[in-house]
């Protein structure tokens, strides 16, 4: 099996600091990591490779620095990597991103399966996976929590509202996976050595024969026109419980409110 896995490098956002004045992220001291949700697609790919043989190629569009993310994927057990980097890619929205990656994948043909993460933790749209599938004319399964291969088909179990749906897709296909699918492994020592040695291919717009009209900011139909900090406020009453008496008082207040709102 030949599996292609697009991965994104993102800022580590679990302790993100925001500038309250400008509503933008404070980038100083923020580490770049592999999109945490892409670890699950990598793990899924490696398990399929262990079972059916083949190879995994990871692809990332981003600045030179995104090489680190590709190296980490190699260290986990992927075989080859391509970095899509070009000043013309800057400012891409999900259309331009999907377009650029799909052009690179065309160049990597043939393949059996493309695996994407559910979404990236920064842009947070979950649109790039379906976008690539559509541009390449591939069948698609999103929100997948289990993948099996049967008679040259993909059996994908999807986590949807109210339960699990099972789809049967011909290959090649594109599958986006959710966290439930598998626990990602850590990079191994041999993997790290391999990553260190591997010369990562770098492709620009020219190499992937992309139409410049569809690239970067210029090729992006959407524009972020403003960013700001989310407002959250409705400061209500706060009661501090210090002893038995204030505990009872707090309970009284809750009961009162529940009655007022006709909950009880």
């Amino acid at each position: 099996m030949r599996i292609i896995i697009p991965i994104k490098q993102v800022p580590e956002t679990s302790n993100v600091k925001m500038d309250p004045e400008t509503g933008t992220m404070v980038r100083e001291g923020v580490e770049s990591i592999i999109n945490p949700l892409d670890l699950y697609s990598i793990e899924t790919g490696i398990r399929l490779k262990e079972k059916y043989g083949g190879e995994i190629i990871v692809v990332s569009m981003g600045p030179q620095k995104a090489e680190e993310a590709l190296k980490e994927a190699i260290a986990m057990g992927c075989d080859d990597a391509v970095l899509l980097t070009d000043k013309f890619f800057a400012g891409s929205d999900t259309f331009a991103t999907s377009y650029t990656i799909s052009k690179a994948i065309e160049k990597l043909k043939p393949f059996d399966l493309i695996l994407c993460g559910e979404r990236a933790t920064d842009g947070d749209t979950a649109q790039v996976g379906p976008g690539i599938a559509s541009l390449l004319g591939l069948p698609l399964a999103t929100f997948t929590s289990k993948v099996e291969i049967e008679d040259g088909h993909i059996k994908a179990t999807r986590l949807i509202e109210g339960g699990y749906e099972v789809l049967n897709l011909p290959m090649p296909a594109l599958v986006t996976v959710v966290k439930e699918i598998a626990d990602p492994r850590l990079p191994t020592l041999t993997g790290k050595l391999k990553a260190k040695k591997l010369e990562i291919k770098q492709w620009t717009a020219k190499e992937i024969e992309a139409d410049p009209e569809n690239l970067g900011l210029k090729g992006s139909p959407t524009r972020v026109v403003k960013t700001f900090s989310p407002k959250v406020a409705r400061e209500g009453k706060v009661i501090e419980v210090k002893d038995e008496k204030s505990l009872n008082q707090a309970v009284d207040e809750i009961i009162e409110l529940l009655k007022e709102k006709a909950i009880i």
């Binding site: 933008t24 842009g123 139909p221 026109v225 900090s229 989310p230």
Partner: peptide
């Protein structure tokens, strides 16, 4: 004008579509 949370809910972005 489309407003949405991004970056883990840390910012809100307003987006326009040219097409």
């Amino acid at each position: 004008l489309q407003t949405r949370p991004a970056i883990g809910g840390n910012i809100m972005a307003t987006i326009k579509t040219a097409t």
